[in-house]
């Protein structure tokens, strides 16, 4: 059986909020290392990969592998019934028909309990090759969100160019063009504002802004976001969570003819 207690319901609320517009039905794969989810969007252009390590829960118990097929719309409805600070416990039997969610308020003695019916989801698992990326940019997640939002007003695509000069986000649209240039930056007082660029070779790739704007819904999960790029491979956008848990998005680059 599965029993996983989260100190704050807020974490799961934010994760589900960040991915529910990309993927609708997905398996939450539970085993003794934690709860994982991997799903592609309908167009197979973007992929979500979530890992909530067992250490992110206290306690965490999962005796055998359980796949919880959940509709994220249904999960969103139930998670709205939780206060952000509620303690959240997920429970399921070994061959479950439902997943049980218990929300406990630490301040009052209120305990609420919900069951969500599970679905049989035949989901293909993709092998994501280990990649040594040519460029890794770590930057404030709010800054990345702003760049994507600003440029999406002008164009459908953004080119991300990384060189020893820094990183340049460029777009061309019907009304004109825009570009934002960032350099490495260290703020001793506010390290969450740091921009770190780790480059082994120059990279230039083009991506759909629609998907990037969507990924940025995860900005509330982490102050910083990591962008990993190599020429001709999908972009990795990573929001690190505590205890080595993470929410990652992959996006296939656009290719010019």
């Amino acid at each position: 059986m599965l029993e996983a207690r989260l100190e704050q319901a807020n974490l799961l609320k934010k994760v589900v909020d960040a991915i529910k517009d990309l993927v609708q039905d997905c398996n939450f794969d539970c085993n003794d290392s934690g709860i994982a989810l991997q799903a592609m969007d309908n167009s197979h252009v973007a992929l979500v990969s979530m890992m909530l390590k067992s250490e992110s829960f206290s306690p965490f118990r999962c005796d055998r592998n359980i796949a919880l097929g959940i509709n994220l719309g249904s999960l969103t409805k139930v998670l709205r019934c939780a206060q952000n600070e509620d303690i959240l416990t997920l429970k399921a039997e070994d061959a479950p028909d439902v997943v049980n969610l218990v929300f406990e308020s630490a301040e009052t003695d209120r305990i609420s309990e919900y069951d969500i019916k599970l679905m049989d989801i035949d989901q293909e698992h993709l092998g994501i090759p280990e990649t040594e990326y040519a460029a890794t940019i770590t930057m404030p997640s709010a800054e990345f969100q702003r760049i994507c939002r600003d440029l999406s007003a002008l164009s459908e695509s953004v080119s991300i160019e990384c060189s020893k000069e820094g990183v340049k986000f460029n777009c061309q649209g019907d009304i004109g063009s825009g570009s934002i240039h960032l350099r490495s930056h260290t703020n001793v007082d506010k390290p969450e504002l740091n921009v770190e660029i780790d480059l082994t070779e120059p990279v230039s790739l083009t991506f759909s802004l629609k998907y990037l704007v969507n990924f940025c819904k995860a900005s509330g999960l982490s102050n910083q976001v990591k962008l990993c790029l190599s020429n001709e491979v999908p972009l990795l956008v990573e929001y690190a969570l505590s205890n080595n848990s993470y929410l990652r998005f992959y996006l296939a680059p656009k290719i010019g003819d």
């Binding site: 197979h44 293909e124 993709l126 759909s208 296939a252 656009k254």
Partner: peptide, 14 residues
């Protein structure tokens, strides 16, 4: 014109 390939090109089914 710009072409948008899918991720299936890059990641293999397990």
């Amino acid at each position: 014109p710009i072409h948008q390939p899918t991720l299936d090109t890059y990641f293999c089914s397990r």
